[in-house]
Write a protein that binds this DNA or RNA. Structure first.
Lengths: 143, 143
DNA sequence: AAAGAAATATGATTTAAATCATATGAAATA
DNA sequence: TATTTCATATGATTTAAATCATATTTCTTT
């Protein structure tokens, strides 16, 4: 469904948000350990998220990553997915038929659109905050 | 969503079925040309489909691939997807969290399950026949 | 100002998927 | 039975994603 990169991005974002929610800033090492991801690879992903202003990075001693509390409500999964994988998951043809569209549909066009729409709706309506609450209350896990 | 291999498998199956529906047998070359896929790669995929008895292969002059008419009704997309990609798409965690399950759910477990179920339902309820009819009537395209 | 701790930037390596190429085997027909 | 046409089998190559490694930059603290 998502690329591994995107999965790590989502898990990292949730973790950072969960810590920021408790006023804690986290380093790459913290993140990698707590979401069980390769450290350098995670660093690369965080750079992208920082550039897209999904996470905020602070260099130097005491630095790390955080997500301002106001943003935890505002950031949704769709933004993260788009930042990493682009919007192909929302638009691309399920059978990779060239130029598949309503005027020139693949045999699955209609049925796929419905599922893709559900996915898009879900990603769009799921903000970090609700995921953070679940993680912080021990109802769900990142590892 | 699906691997490229699986996409080719689905398109090839639809094409073969569409031709079989009109009592025509097709060669690998025909298939590759008509679904715009790499020929040798397609051959490899067809071997798998033949072993899983989704398509029927006939060697020698006049040979090729076909899907017996009775089967065009019976074969659904889920069977093809499982033959190629396995059932991971129906079961795997959207965030690749280790051992994600109801007792140890990732933050997206619930929401993903709902979408995966819709997908499974769609693949299960879509048989080759309905796709073939669309293709043969010119309503949808494989290329 | 110096030292240390952090992110950033870049490039190399590994792995897996996708693709290409070719030799082999089986069936039909002449 | 020889030849041709097809699928089958196998392995090599390419490509892209994932991972690893390291040098550089920035910031903080002393």
């Amino acid at each position: 469904m998502f690329s591994k990169t995107c999965e790590y991005a989502i898990r990292a974002s949730i973790f950072i948000a969960a810590q920021s929610y408790q006023d804690k800033r986290v380093t790459i090492k913290d993140i990698a350990e707590n979401i069980d991801s390769p450290k350098s690879f995670t660093a690369k992903i965080l750079q992208i998220l920082a550039k897209k202003e999904i996470v905020h990075s602070i260099k130097g001693i005491g630095g790390g990553f955080e997500i301002p509390k106001e943003n935890i409500k505002r950031i949704n999964l769709a933004q993260i997915v788009i930042a990493i994988d682009g919007d192909s998951i929302f638009k691309s043809c399920g059978l990779s038929v060239n130029h598949c569209c309503d005027q020139h549909p693949c045999p699955l066009n209609k049925k796929f659109k419905s599922i893709r729409n559900d996915l898009a709706k879900m990603l769009d309506s799921t903000c970090l905050e609700e995921l953070v609450l679940d993680v912080n209350s021990g109802e769900s896990f990142l590892i």
